[in-house]
């Protein structure tokens, strides 16, 4: 039996708008094993950030269950959640807007500690010592303790965000595009830092990104999302070696390899992501898909396990045979 730190069951998050209901996350289920990293990939608007926020209850799910360490946290009150948030933290995408510009590094990193009365009874010096420790952990020079965010570059700001998340000794961290605002050489520094922290502290990550080469490097398992639904889920190596869903295939072929002649023609997708408002009851990828069979319009396809731990949601993929016939544009 796998030791799951997070279990998500049939999670849904809908937003009501004047034009209809946005199905941001629609019936998503998965588990994350303790100490592992689940990568979540997909394009803008596929619901990956909403999913991350709902799991740690920054937003309340419309339906479904989130189970953390055996306890259902979906219906906990705000007061009860406050205790839970010690364990469940998040690192945001944009290191420019996620830090309060009027607070110093010291104030930003110590805020969660003070707010949660984690070091009740200890002196100001002790809190500062803890902040300095955290700064060491994430590789921020201690001399910056009284700096303001605007004085620092993106890589350093993201390190503040990481230190802030670590200040409560969390067990599970949602990393929402933590490196996409950073330059490549800095991006590699931060990715290595996150990997080292995971090893040292036994952290579990949910790593949300649109960058497929980063997700492959970083994750044990990968979840591919399209318009609020999971279309494919597999261990990282399996997914990259043997992608099945037409959308996953197109995503992987769109990766640009930095090599001479490294980019043969990609599978180009027609059109753009369709609207998540009141989506029709059919496979959501149908309108961009090159492989259409007669069942595509018959409801949303369920996730089927086509080989151990490899799940695909596609009407055209049958457990007995997984070859797809290209039907459009031949």
């Amino acid at each position: 039996m796998a030791d799951n730190i997070i279990e998500v069951k049939n999670l849904k998050k809908y937003f009501k708008t004047p034009h209809g209901t946005v199905h941001a996350v629609d019936d998503v289920s998965f588990n994350i094993e303790r100490g592992k990293t689940l990568g979540v990939v997909g394009e803008s608007g596929c619901g990956k950030s909403t999913l991350g926020r709902n799991i740690i209850r920054l937003q309340d799910p419309t339906a479904g269950q989130v189970i953390y360490d055996g306890q259902d946290i979906t219906d906990l009150s705000n007061q009860q959640m406050k205790r839970m948030r010690h364990d469940l933290q998040i690192i945001f995408q944009d290191p420019y807007s996620s830090l309060n510009p009027r607070k110093t590094v010291m104030e930003i990193i110590s805020e969660p500690i003070l707010f949660n009365k984690l070091m009740k009874g200890s002196s100001k010096q002790d809190v500062e010592k803890r902040v300095r420790e955290l700064m060491d952990t994430v590789g921020l020079a201690q001399r910056l303790i009284n700096s303001y965010p605007h004085e620092l570059d993106g890589g350093r700001r993201q390190r503040i965000g990481i230190a802030r998340a670590l200040s409560l000794n969390p067990k599970f961290i949602v990393c929402d595009e933590p490196v996409s605002a950073l330059d490549v050489s800095i991006q590699a520094q931060v990715l290595n830092l996150l990997k080292d922290l995971q090893k040292e502290m036994g952290l579990t990550y949910m790593f949300i990104t649109h960058d497929l080469s980063v997700v492959n490097y970083f994750s044990d398992d990968i979840l591919v999302m399209y318009l609020g639904m999971v279309v494919e889920k597999a261990p990282a190596e399996v997914l990259f070696k043997n992608p099945i869903h037409p959308y996953t295939k197109a995503l992987l072929s769109a990766i640009l390899v930095p090599k001479v002649n490294g980019n043969p023609d990609h599978i180009s997708l027609r059109g753009e992501v369709t609207s998540p408002i009141n989506p029709p009851d059919e496979c959501r990828f149908t309108r961009r898909c090159d492989y259409i069979c007669d069942t595509c319009k018959a409801g949303t396809p369920p996730l089927i396990e086509i080989e151990p731990n490899h799940f695909v949601a596609c009407h055209c993929v049958k457990p007995e045979g997984i070859t797809l016939q290209r039907t459009v544009g031949v």
Binding site: S185, I186, A188, N192, S213, Y217, A236, F240, I255
Partner: peptide, 17 residues
């Protein structure tokens, strides 16, 4: 620059920032 990019085909390789 090249060595700080994650390799698609070689997951094991370490990033060298």
């Amino acid at each position: 620059l090249f060595n700080s990019l994650p390799r698609i085909n070689n997951k094991g390789s370490e990033l060298k920032p």
